[in-house]
């Protein structure tokens, strides 16, 4: 596609948000970054520009403005903060792809706080009934964005959602971020995807992966 898509990244100064923003800034995207800490946000924007002078990137001091201007919105905030973001962007996110990257981890990192019959992504969809919520990026660690190829293999990033067009849009985003997009199924598959991250975290702690690990489906 030639026409540049505008992507809002809410919570851009977090490890995940910053990783996504850094990698997407190399693609044909216009990025609008939002965060609570403006100083940190400015520093991130300057750092991205220093590494890539051609980056079409801007710090926006208002989540609503950025989401209004965006074609797709990446909600890169912790699960407990999603409701507040959803309340802010509900009107301007109407019909847009909204990407849920969070994992509703418990304090011990050994389970999820959501009930077994739901997921962070499905809860976000309930809060944004007219948006196309897509689960993505939740199964990768922040460090994977700087090193998306591990042991010679490109890390898989699983995607789940109910709208075929939104899934396609997000698959392109995942690909532009340097990861291998794998469309896993409808939004309820997010339950599995969020639990996969619990396991990855457990393994990372147990075997000391140094938070540089990812999933790869091997197939013929």
């Amino acid at each position: 596609m030639n026409t540049k898509q505008t992507i809002a990244v809410i919570g851009a100064t977090g490890n995940m948000g910053a990783g996504i923003a850094r990698n997407l800034s190399k693609g044909n995207y216009r990025l609008l970054l939002c965060a609570n800490n403006q100083e940190k946000l400015q520093a991130l924007v300057q750092d991205i520009r220093r590494h890539n002078a051609a980056a079409d990137i801007e710090a926006v001091d208002c989540t609503v403005e950025a989401s209004w201007e965006a074609d797709s919105i990446i909600v890169a905030v912790p699960y407990p903060a999603e409701k507040e973001v959803a309340d802010k962007i509900r009107k301007v996110a109407n019909q847009k792809s909204v990407i849920s990257i969070s994992n509703p981890l418990n304090a011990a990192y050994n389970g999820l706080t959501t009930a077994p019959d739901t997921s962070a992504a499905e809860e976000l969809q309930k809060l944004l009934p007219n948006s196309k919520v897509v689960k993505a990026f939740n199964t990768v660690f922040a460090a994977d964005f700087a090193t998306p190829v591990l042991d010679g293999k490109q890390v898989d990033s699983f995607i789940a959602g109910n709208n075929p067009e939104a899934l396609q849009t997000v698959a392109e985003l995942v690909s532009a971020a340097g990861l291998n997009p794998v469309i896993a199924g409808d939004l309820s598959v997010s339950r599995t995807l969020e639990n996969m991250t619990v396991l990855l975290i457990q393994l990372s702690m147990k075997y000391n992966y140094n938070w540089l690990a990812g999933w790869k489906v091997l197939h013929h």
């Binding site: 030639n2 209004w68 109407n94």
Partner: peptide, 21 residues
């Protein structure tokens, strides 16, 4: 009808559509 509409801001000189897309 409103539930089907997408509000979108576009700044001066930005493209909504480019030839070939």
């Amino acid at each position: 009808i409103k539930s089907y509409l997408t509000p979108k801001k576009l700044r001066k000189r930005q493209y909504l559509l480019q030839e070939g897309d």
